[in-house]
Nucleic acid binder design. Structure first.
Lengths: 140, 140
DNA sequence: TTTCTTGCAAAGAGTTTGCATTCCA
DNA sequence: TGGAATGCAAACTCTTTGCAAGAAA
């Protein structure tokens, strides 16, 4: 059962207070199989809690990212998406035409990551990447 | 000499008017060896022209991107950088710590692009990609 | 109690848009 | 001249921040 602590327990162990707002944000992120936006978190939160302020959502996300518990990914449009770090690695193919997002396995990137490291000494954050392009359905 | 038309000529041939503002924006993009931001374009423009409005800069960039003459790249922070499409392909390694940007050759991505196409039918826009991580100098 | 968190409102940054005016072709 | 392009100002989106009020431990 080790390594299976929920994000909330980890936060508490680190000395952070477990407020209802934080519990709700964490729950929303853990419940989402996929990436989730700050806005979606607020909407999910509202279902369980009359109201949660966006600054609280952002502050909680900031905390989770700082603690390395959640990954922040820029999928374009100046919008960030969040994802629990411990979940299986994957990436996203974002279609510029229909805006659909398809998840793909991380293995495709392993070689690239290795090459960037050996050739440039660059330690690439490729845990959760968005790749833009045209998907199968929208191909001309 | 073919395939060596400047962006301005191409625009004119397509029926767009060659205003001073457009000439200045195009000149700034062509002069920049690297990627350039909307703000940098405005600053470069001001050196030659008393004033150019940001909406004009953005509208010109939008036009150039629509026409496929310029590439728009999201290097994070909700900021876009622009680059002439015809210039040599390259990518960027962006260090999260020192914020330095290192240009790398596009060849590293060829295999990845091929795999995304064959495995997922996804036509990835990998002309000009920003990869985040930690550079050699900042490595712990 | 006491310090950490929240909510509110306002401020940001970067970008987009409506509309009247200007100007290229 | 006439439609395309510009400038201006206001709006817009997403996110951050200061500060007083509230609540977890």
């Amino acid at each position: 059962m080790k390594g299976r602590k929920g994000l909330l327990e980890i936060l508490r162990d680190k000395g952070y207070r477990l407020t209802p707002q934080r519990m709700i944000v964490v729950e929303a992120i853990e419940a989402s199989d996929d990436h989730i936006s700050a806005e979606e978190i607020r909407d999910m939160a509202r279902a369980k809690y009359p109201y949660i302020n966006m600054s609280t959502v952002y502050r909680t996300l900031e905390l989770l990212v700082e603690e390395g518990l959640v990954t922040e990914t820029d999928l374009g449009g100046g919008r960030s998406l969040y994802h629990p770090t411990m979940k299986a690695q994957h990436h996203h193919l974002v279609c510029r035409k229909c805006a659909k997002v398809k998840d793909i396995d991380a293995s495709v990137f392993q070689r690239l990551k290795g090459e960037l490291k050996s050739q440039y000494g660059f330690d690439a954050d490729l845990e959760h990447v968005g790749i833009f392009g045209t998907c199968e359905d929208c191909h001309d």
